[in-house]
């Protein structure tokens, strides 16, 4: 999996990577869903589109993830597969395939309040994109 959870006192973080910035952002989003529940248990039942804006890669990542937090909190949408369809000029568009949260089938993981700028990393080195983001729990 192109993401892993990282340790933070009291909170939780995701480290994600990808050959392209689009792949890395998608991995970060899938990593976010892994904090909420066991992603193995998520079925691909519907696909939604998500858009976000940000005037630099860092705020684009934070705003994108916060949009996912918002959509989960209001619609219960859990993503199993995330694909970034466009990223550039201060905007991102992605599709999320998954289903709505069902407490009977989805183990309750962490309640994410927000993605933060704390120790945020969006870096490209040796042809690989690496992202690190910490969530307030």
């Amino acid at each position: 999996m192109p993401y892993e959870q990282i340790e933070v006192t009291g909170d939780a973080g995701i480290k994600a990577c990808g050959a392209t910035v689009e792949e890395a952002f998608a991995a970060a989003a899938e990593g976010f869903y892994s904090l909420l529940t066991d992603t193995e248990k998520i079925r691909k039942e519907k696909t939604i589109e998500v858009k976000a804006k940000g005037d630099n890669p860092e705020s684009l990542l934070v705003n994108f993830l916060n949009e996912l937090v918002f959509i989960f909190d209001t619609k219960g949408m859990l993503g199993k597969k995330v694909a970034v369809s466009s990223l550039g000029n201060g905007a991102i568009a992605a599709t999320i395939s998954g289903e709505e949260f069902d407490p009977e089938r989805h183990p309750r993981g962490l309640l994410v309040k927000a993605a933060t700028y704390h120790n945020l990393k969006v870096e490209s080195k040796n042809g690989q994109w690496e992202l690190e983001v910490i969530f307030d729990i």
Binding site: S59, N66, F70, K113, A114, Y117, H118, L120, D136
Partner: peptide
Amino acid sequence: GFGHQVCTDYLEEMATAVRKYGISLPDR
């Protein structure tokens, strides 16, 4: 979630304010 969203929204707004008022910060 109500309060979390208020904080998220205004952190974004404040990032613009920081530039507008020329405040230099060690941490966003």
